[in-house]
Nucleic acid binder design. Structure first.
Lengths: 147, 147
DNA sequence: CAAACTGTAACCGCATCGGTTGCAGTTAAC
DNA sequence: GTTAACTGCAACCGATGCGGTTACAGTTTG
């Protein structure tokens, strides 16, 4: 529970690679190579992106993954919310307790505070698009890239 | 990795209880009762708050925990940063990779984006103080509370 | 047919969390 | 000075989730 999974990073990385293909497709093995990971993990993550309508997959020989939306219409928040589940903050699962004034009422207020904080994080993620990210990637790297 | 620990919630709950004591002290057992948890966990969390200078502990019979600062000078961010460690987002631990243009340069940019998002969350947490939270607790609950 | 893909399920090893027990150290009450 | 009520800390447990891997069924192309 020391933070979220690395699926967001994997998802954004994959989306940036696909955007760099400009309509073309990539296999899970190619993406896994660039991530230093393995194809099964990539398919697990991209499967969630497909369920969220961000990418498409085609089966069979010559198949692979491609974007289902324009890169400028995909934000980091879209990727994040597609692959991470549940809330960032956790609460105690225990009975609300008790004869204690504070314990009785703090629950809802704490939920509000945590939700506000998470919303702030999500709004910040929503301010960056895959197109914008890719633009900065291509600007900082220089040579002509593969993939 | 499905989120943070519940230590933030425990810490904030405990701080609110201590603030409600207005200078008085509470034992870890009393706080654990209100949380539906156990004293060892409470001491683990409050120990971190003490290291951060938010509370004080006194040993021995009649000992316990009290605030080391005015409630209006303690924000939810103070509690959060004292008990949670590391970043919210994780990255792949694997070799940066590769011959891939995107993989080569995305690392730093992704770190920037994640840091910005986390900072937004932290700033939101910093906008609420323990005093403000307690005020709302006492306003929504009505009777005279114990503790 | 064979080859190259996706899509899943199953299992492993590992880290971390919350929970618990046990015990040493400290202070106050008697 | 003995007892009681605390903190402080180490050790261990079970559960959970993650990333990694193997295996295999299904699908499409050559």
């Amino acid at each position: 529970m020391a933070g979220l999974s690395s699926r967001s990073a994997v998802a954004i990385h994959a989306l940036a690679m696909l955007a760099n293909r400009r309509g073309g497709s990539l296999t899970s093995a190619e993406i896994a190579d660039s991530l230093g990971s393995n194809p099964v993990l990539v398919r697990r993550v991209l499967g969630r992106l497909r369920d969220a309508g961000l990418v498409r997959s085609t089966e069979g020989r010559g198949g692979g993954w491609s974007l289902a939306r324009a890169p400028r219409d995909i934000t980091l928040y879209d990727a994040y919310t597609a692959v991470e589940e549940g809330q960032i903050f956790s609460r105690h699962t225990h009975p609300p307790s008790s004869a204690c004034e504070v314990g009785r009422t703090i629950g809802v207020l704490l939920d509000d505070e945590f939700r506000s904080a998470e919303r702030a994080l999500e709004e910040q993620l929503g301010r960056t698009t895959i197109a914008g990210l890719l633009q900065r990637i291509l600007a900082s790297g220089n040579g002509a890239g593969s993939h």
